[in-house]
C-alpha cells in the first residue's frame, strides 16, 4: 500500500494547472480530494509521475445560486454540499445524495468534481447529475466547452473529458418538486448495491415531469428516459410506478461482484427505484 514515487505540483491558477498538464502529458494527472485516486496509486493500479493538485485554485471553489440556476465549482467538497443552506433549499437532492457517500472523513476531502470526473460507476454523483440534466464545464488548451452529464460517460473510467482538460464547474437548473436519492449499500463507506436518483414535478394530481437515473447498475451511470416518460401524465399510482420501474430495469446491466449476483442486484434495484419514486412523489 505504498505508491510509487511522484512529483507534486500545486498551481494557484487554472492556466498554470493546464500548462503543467501540457508539459507532462500522459505522465500528469490532476488530483482533487484524492479519495479515489490515492487508493489506486497505493495499490499501484495507477502510477502517476506528476500530480497536479487543484486545491489552491480559488476559481474552482464556491456554490452560486441565481434563481433556478445552480453552479457548483469542481473543488467543492461533499461536506460543503451538505453544509450549504442555500443549496439545500434550491436543490435538496444534492444534500440527500452527498450524505450517502462514504463517511464524514471522506466527505470532508472528496470533491464533487472528482466524483463526477472519476468515471467509476460506483460514484453516486454522476447518476444524480444525469437525473438533473447537469452540464460539465471543461477547460483545456483550446478553451472551454460544456458537456451534458447524460453524454459524458462512455465506459468505466472512460469519459468525454480529454486528458488535458480540467473540469471547472457543474451547472444545472434546480428541478423543483419532489426528489429522492435512495441507496442500498452493505455498510457505511460502501458503494451502492443499487441506487436511484428521482425528481418529480406535480401539476394538480398528475405528474408533469420526471427524471430517473441509477448508480452502479451498469458500467456507466444510467439515465432512463423511458422510466421518466412512464410517470409523466400519470398519478404515480402503483401500476404507473410499476411501469416506470420496469422501464428503468430494462435500461440497466448489473454485473456480479462481492455485493451479489446480477440477478439479486436487479431485484434490489427494482425495490430501490420504486422507493425513490414513491418518496419523490410524496414530496412533490
Amino acid at each position: 500500500m505504498i505508491p510509487a514515487a511522484f512529483e507534486y505540483h500545486r498551481p494557484t491558477d487554472l492556466q498554470a494547472a493546464l500548462a503543467t498538464l501540457q508539459e507532462f502529458g500522459d505522465e500528469a494527472r490532476v488530483i482533487a480530494g484524492g479519495h479515489s485516486l490515492v487508493p489506486m496509486m497505493k495499490l499501484r493500479m495507477a502510477t502517476i509521475g506528476h500530480l497536479v493538485d487543484l486545491r489552491a485554485i480559488a476559481d474552482l471553489k464556491g456554490i452560486r445560486i441565481d434563481g433556478a440556476a445552480v453552479r457548483i465549482g469542481a473543488m467543492v467538497t461533499q461536506q460543503e454540499l451538505i453544509a450549504d443552506a442555500a443549496l439545500a433549499r434550491a436543490a435538496p437532492i444534492l444534500r440527500e445524495t452527498a450524505l450517502q457517500i462514504a463517511d464524514p472523513q471522506v466527505r470532508a476531502v472528496g470533491t464533487i468534481g472528482g466524483n463526477v470526473a472519476n468515471g467509476d460507476p460506483g460514484n453516486d454523483m454522476p447518476a444524480l447529475m444525469q437525473c438533473l440534466d447537469a452540464s460539465f464545464s471543461l477547460v483545456g488548451p483550446n478553451g472551454s466547452r460544456a458537456v451534458k452529464a447524460r453524454e459524458f460517460y462512455e465506459a468505466a473510467y472512460v469519459t468525454a473529458r480529454e486528458d488535458d482538460e480540467i473540469l471547472v464547474a457543474i451547472d444545472f437548473a434546480a428541478p423543483g418538486g419532489g426528489y429522492a436519492y435512495e441507496k442500498q449499500k452493505r455498510k457505511i463507506g460502501d458503494y451502492a448495491t443499487a441506487a436511484a436518483a428521482v425528481t418529480i414535478r406535480k401539476d394538480g394530481t398528475a405528474c408533469s415531469a420526471a427524471s430517473v437515473a441509477m448508480t452502479n447498475l451498469s458500467d456507466v451511470p444510467v439515465w432512463s428516459k423511458a422510466a421518466g416518460d412512464a410517470l409523466v401524465g400519470s398519478a404515480c399510482g402503483p401500476a404507473d410506478v410499476g411501469r416506470a420501474v420496469a422501464a428503468a430495469l430494462a435500461d440497466i446491466a448489473p454485473t456480479a461482484d462481492n455485493r451479489g449476483p446480477a440477478e439479486f442486484k436487479r431485484h434490489a434495484a427494482g425495490v430501490v427505484i420504486r422507493r425513490a419514486i414513491e418518496r419523490a412523489w410524496s414530496r412533490a
Binding site: 442500498q184 452493505r186 448495491t193 455485493r259 451479489g260 449476483p261 439479486f264 431485484h267 434490489a268
Partner: peptide, 11 residues
C-alpha cells in the same frame, strides 16, 4: 448473512 444471501433465502 449479507444482503444477497438473505435475499437468496427468501427467493
Amino acid at each position: 448473512h449479507d444482503h444477497w444471501r438473505i435475499w437468496k433465502i427468501a427467493r
